[in-house]
Amino acid sequence: VGSGRLGQPAVAPRTVWLPAMKAKGLEISGTFSRQVGTISMDLLLTNKALQVMSDFAIQFNRNSFGLAPAAPLQIHAPLAPNQTVEISLPLNTVGSVMKMEPLNNLQVAVKNNIDVFYFSTLYPLHILFVEDGKMERQMFLATWKDIPNENEAQFQIKECPLSADAVSSKLQGSNIFTVAKRNVEGQDMLYQSLKLTNGIWVLAELRIQPGSPGLMLSVKCRAPEVSPYVYQAYETIVKN
């Protein structure tokens, strides 16, 4: 799992979301990915109990961006003790919306023939970055000017010794688009846009100083509470 190649979407390695000792022997590990417009929850289910597991189902609580399973959890045969099954559950964003704290928190219920189990996980915001997130240049300039300075957040991305073009290409693989590039006094400045599945636009300026290993990210958005999660996404993508 994971891809370090340029232009490929960033995918984090799976982590354990539900330890077997908390779920009567059912262990669930997972990660999230987005591939050409399809969001997936990529799961490994392991039966660490002494009995067979069957009748699996999954449900999400209401969440900030309406993430919901787009299909039932399909496990075709009962899961024998010590058996593991790998599942890619397609998700959509047309579920019920309720603002969560943190914003990217997802509460999940999984049922089998033994019981119902609950866990929470955090999803990376970039699974919500849509493919048509490149803003028109004129619109970008107008929107940048229009969003008040109080809505600008700045972040440092440390230790990323990549060129402007390499960073731009990596980010584009996860639907962060470079609208314009300038070089001022030796600094590369990238103006970038992205759009979330709920239609929120995010504008960014990324500064790259040749010879300096860090990047400076400025984020402007009409919904500034998303900015720290956008920064986290940048971190994950450029370091993937």
């Binding site: 240049r137 300039l141 314009a180 300038r182 001022v184 103006y191 400025s218």
Partner: peptide, 20 residues
Amino acid sequence: EMDDGLEEAFSRLAQSRTNP
């Protein structure tokens, strides 16, 4: 010519951000 205006506007934006 319109695109030249946009090019110029981005240059001004980048300049203003570097030397506010």
